[in-house]
Simulated scan of single mutants.
Amino acid sequence: MSVAIVTDSTSSLSPEDAEREGISVIPLQVIIGADVFTEGVDVTADMLAEALASFVPVSTSRPTPDDFLTVYERLAAEGADAIVSVHLSSKMSGTFDSAVLASKQASVPVTCIDSTQVGIATGFAAGRAASARDAGEDVVGVAEAARRAGDSSTVLLYVDTLEYLKRGGRVGAAAALIGSALAVKPILTITDGLVVPLERVRTQAKAIARLEALAVERAEGCDKGFDIGVQHLSSLTLATAVASRLAAALELDSIGVDEVGASIGAHVGPGMISVTVTPRC
């Protein structure tokens, strides 16, 4: 059986990684002011950061069911007998719902997986699906590999302000108000598919140090190894330093650093740093 893997652009897979692993990526739309852009095609993180800093309205739009169906049918025409479609948390976006609607019209069976995550955690889940496929697993095994990766991932985020998450409805208003009132630097995580406050720290330096400590603790608890990555928005120097310190602490040669795509960046704002740890199991 030939199993194809699909994900969306929030997974932060580079075109090179997606091609190497045989994963099709469906882009989200990013709306800046009155202009509509396609993630991964004609919008950059710099454009996004500039718009956010200038208080230009920024929002995102999920792919339509037709967008998914077009890709599903192309893969079927290319010889896929089944498809596993792995996407960001359904509680943060309607992308998963579009995939489900399209799956009902596809000419081959499509299994839609809600990774319950965002960013490279979703990318790691799609990558695990691809690895399972390449190892000869059937569609059930491929889907289960993606599901396990999403369920077991830990995403830790530092944001300069909760304002952008509050605007997009990605974190509760009460949490945003607490952060503002106490002038703290929040550390966030993903729980049950939602962004939730994890800890409150007084300064950026302490927040970053705590973020690193939590990431090391999580990684060291993975008996069979782990995948790890650092992401940022307009904070390359800080993200590179975080990755370097984590690599040293975990005795790794290096840790990848990527800038988040515009669809995630629109909700976290400039200055965001995240670390994702996905156990290998």
Results as ranks from 00 to 15, higher is better:
189 T>N: 01
73 E>I: 06
33 G>M: 11
241 A>G: 13
5 I>E: 03
85 S>L: 05
35 D>F: 01
30 V>C: 08
269 G>K: 12
92 M>A: 04
37 F>W: 12
52 L>N: 09
76 A>Q: 04
67 D>A: 14
168 G>P: 04
183 A>Y: 03
123 G>P: 01
25 V>W: 09
229 G>Y: 01
94 G>A: 08
236 L>Q: 11
54 S>Y: 01
208 I>F: 03
158 Y>W: 05
20 R>H: 08
83 I>W: 15
151 D>H: 12
49 A>N: 08
257 V>W: 05
227 D>I: 02
241 A>N: 14
261 G>Y: 04
8 D>L: 09
200 R>H: 13
161 T>W: 02
49 A>D: 07
229 G>M: 11
176 A>G: 13
258 D>M: 14
95 T>D: 00
110 V>P: 06
102 A>F: 09
42 D>E: 12
219 A>S: 07
147 R>D: 04
198 L>G: 09
186 P>F: 10
196 V>M: 13
219 A>D: 07
124 F>M: 05
66 D>I: 12
251 E>L: 06
142 V>Y: 07
8 D>G: 08
99 A>V: 02
113 I>W: 10
28 L>P: 01
126 A>K: 08
251 E>T: 15
64 T>N: 09
155 V>S: 13
214 L>S: 07
132 A>F: 10
151 D>W: 04
225 G>W: 14
26 I>S: 02
30 V>S: 07
268 V>W: 05
103 S>Q: 07
119 G>S: 15
36 V>K: 15
280 R>E: 08
231 Q>D: 00
279 P>H: 11
254 S>L: 01
27 P>K: 15
61 S>D: 02
160 D>R: 13
222 C>W: 05
180 S>P: 00
119 G>T: 12
261 G>L: 06
120 I>W: 08
251 E>K: 15
281 C>N: 12
102 A>I: 08
146 A>G: 13
269 G>A: 09
70 T>S: 13
54 S>F: 05
137 E>L: 14
94 G>W: 04
240 T>D: 12
220 E>F: 00
266 A>F: 07
193 G>Y: 13
34 A>T: 14
48 L>N: 11
241 A>I: 00
106 A>V: 05
66 D>L: 15
66 D>A: 15
19 E>H: 14
76 A>P: 02
94 G>F: 01
76 A>D: 01
101 L>V: 14
216 V>D: 04
141 G>E: 02
225 G>Q: 10
276 T>Q: 02
218 R>T: 09
72 Y>Q: 02
113 I>E: 03
181 A>E: 00
14 S>K: 12
83 I>P: 05
26 I>W: 05
127 G>A: 11
258 D>G: 03
48 L>F: 08
110 V>C: 07
101 L>K: 14
151 D>R: 14
178 I>R: 07
200 R>Y: 15
139 V>T: 10
54 S>L: 05
68 F>S: 02
56 V>H: 08
214 L>Y: 07
207 A>G: 10
250 L>T: 09
34 A>S: 15
35 D>S: 14
175 A>M: 01
86 V>D: 04
13 L>F: 06
69 L>P: 06
135 A>D: 15
146 A>S: 08
166 K>P: 00
13 L>T: 06
116 T>F: 01
61 S>N: 09
154 T>F: 00
186 P>A: 10
